[in-house]
Design a protein around this nucleic acid. Structure first.
Lengths: 242, 242
DNA sequence: CGCCGGGTTGAGGGATCTCAAACCCAGTGG
DNA sequence: CCACTGGGTTTGAGATCCCTCAACCCGGCG
């Protein structure tokens, strides 16, 4: 992966855009030097790199500065289910902050090359309890995570293939919007069709056909790993009804 | 619902079988009177009763003493996805102990008539932090919950209909086994086929056919809301491979 | 140049759904 | 005691969605 595809975190945490969205955002606002002090360094991982394996016990946790990753479960025979996508500002394996020392219930892999900031789990656990603002931020983040997987369960169980894809695109748009990473309905969308398939429980081939349907109906446009939502209302309608 | 279908909790918490499996189990072992002091009373709810509605903020949490319930999400048009089944000893809405004051991400409904013990969320939150044993029990329970929904996501996304049903039966057997509620592969299974369908993301009709397949292959037997696993190896194989 | 990962397209089959109807059983009211 | 009712289960027939298998295309890379 050429390096122009990812930016590295700034040296000073105070200047970090992604950091403000991270779980330690409240602390970063008031005393950025504290975060800088805890940071164990920055890493760049190539695309498709296994960061954490299911069953491991994590001792480090990462904040993604740039790039995409995903959490997934994999069966012995190769079947894979992506549980969620991780975007800039997300904490890799936030759950392990709540039950440090327990085995991870899923693996994590980078989809693009990603740059991250590393923290020790114990430091981060302590930080989460250090102030009421942090406690609240932490529980709110966990709550968002639980809500998201609940919705994902509904998607997989009760939505048609097209509905799932529409829903996925809308969910990602929404999350990127909050990060100010959407310009006029257009945003970077580096997931391969295989990844979309593994997230939606479908076949690559079928995903391909469904994307084509959305394209020919002029609802979305895809070029070079970027997606543009051209008819948001129609996409929402599909997500709602199917 | 006639009352012979459910037993009420014993007056003394110290004698409570279900309590030992509850999240406050560690405290119950050492000082049962503390639990008895916190208990706000016992309730009996009829079958099919909505206990909590999505979006609400829970102020009470329940420990199920007898009967089954389920957590689910429902769409405007009636589509429903069951997120998990709640069995005796389970805490209804355990997550809300972690983020008290936030809106529930799912609804909860009784499947049978159930009897429960009620506690205030704030009391329970405090109790969870009162001792290292309780903290550990709490985080372990949360971890189990997260792991379970991760597995459920895999089920819905990557398993065939038959595989999902086999997996569901095995999961329930396993959980009931831990509660000593399985005798020779046979256990109470009050979920209707509609519930199984909503949990597995299938149609009632299809669930019916699949159960028939399992019955005619002599893998399970169903009579009057009880299920017997007659060929555990075969069931496991189906769950693994499909 | 050949190779490889990823995207695209076609043809055909199978798993699952929809619609429709009968059945069974428990409860209810006459 | 019986007829009626309603929720849940069972079965059949046919349609559809989605999958499998099999190619081919394209751009990047060694």
């Amino acid at each position: 992966m050429s390096s122009r595809f990812h930016a590295s975190p700034p040296a000073a945490c105070a200047d970090c855009r992604a950091g403000r969205r991270a779980i330690y955002g409240p602390t970063l606002e008031t005393s950025p030097e504290k975060i800088a002090g805890l940071r164990r360094g920055t890493n760049v991982f190539p695309a498709n790199k296994l960061l954490l394996r299911e069953g491991e016990i994590a001792s480090l946790c990462f904040t993604i500065y740039s790039g995409w990753a995903c959490r997934y479960r994999q069966h012995g025979d190769g079947r894979r289910q992506i549980l969620s996508f991780l975007l800039p500002g997300d904490t890799v394996m936030m759950e392990c902050l709540f039950y440090p020392g327990l085995k991870l219930a899923c693996s994590v892999k980078s989809l693009t090359s990603i740059s991250v900031c590393a923290f020790s789990v114990t430091d981060m656990v302590a930080l989460m309890r250090a102030s009421p603002e942090q406690e609240e931020m932490f529980s709110a983040s966990l709550h968002r995570g639980v809500t998201a997987t609940n919705m994902r369960l509904f998607d997989l169980g009760r939505r048609s293939a097209l509905g799932r894809i529409a829903q996925l695109i809308l969910e990602l748009e929404d999350r990127l919007q909050h990060r100010d990473m959407v310009k006029g309905g257009r945003f970077h969308f580096p997931a391969r069709q295989t990844d979309i398939a593994d997230a939606t429980g479908l076949t690559v081939i079928h995903v391909n056909r469904l994307l084509k349907i959305l394209r020919t109906k002029n609802i979305i446009e895809i070029d070079r790993k970027h997606i543009t939502i051209k008819n948001s209302a129609a996409l929402r309608e599909i997500a709602e009804e199917e």
